[in-house]
Write a protein that binds this DNA or RNA. Structure first.
Lengths: 92, 92
DNA sequence: ACAATAGGCAAGTAGCCACTTGCATGTCAA
DNA sequence: TTGACATGCAAGTGGCTACTTGCCTATTGT
């Protein structure tokens, strides 16, 4: 299991999470096109694929194959831990 | 203003935030000692100082000098943005 | 004044990470 | 079955970053 914080460190990976928030269950090709069109991302398909692997390893994304395509789904549970680790007010 | 996500990417920096959560307003020397004692951190004083600069640049820590010491204070507001950026349920 | 304390600055280094490139695998449609 | 499509794998490269090292500044106490 990879590091959630490190997964969030890359701006392209955060855009992938944004894109999956808007439309869950996208394939790699869908994500690539929409990232280019809507967010001006210039990375190659392989780059996006590697980013997805990091996100999946961190438990933020799950994937399932359907024939020759692979659909990706968002999971936000690991993010809740971040907000809870450092409470709003420090200990007195 | 630096990147909050990138500031959180380093495990030592997260330990610094933990330490400031337990006891806010520590000096550099206090932080170094307690990180070694309680968390087994082996980094040098300069390393911790550079980490504090990153955290301060990201708006997670503020500092104020008192004579020859410098006290560091935690600010968790930038962390709230993370939980709000990706809501618990994706759009339908 | 002098020494000790708390911290800062800057250059150099080593390891990691994002990205590319090239090729391979598997699936659908004609 | 043949070609086009969707994805996977693996090695190589460049840049970033955490860390160290050495020296410097400023403050406090005796």
């Amino acid at each position: 299991m990879g590091d959630v914080y490190q997964a969030l460190a890359d701006p392209t990976r955060r855009l992938i999470l944004d894109e999956l928030t808007e439309r869950d269950g996208q394939s790699l090709f869908e994500l690539c096109s929409r990232l280019v069109m809507r967010h001006g991302v210039t990375s190659s398909r392989q780059a996006i694929s590697q980013h997805l692997a990091v996100l999946e390893d961190a438990g933020l994304v799950s994937s399932r194959r359907f024939g020759r395509t692979k659909l990706h789904h968002l999971h936000t549970e690991p993010l809740r831990e971040i907000a809870e680790r450092w409470p709003a007010e420090p200990k007195e």
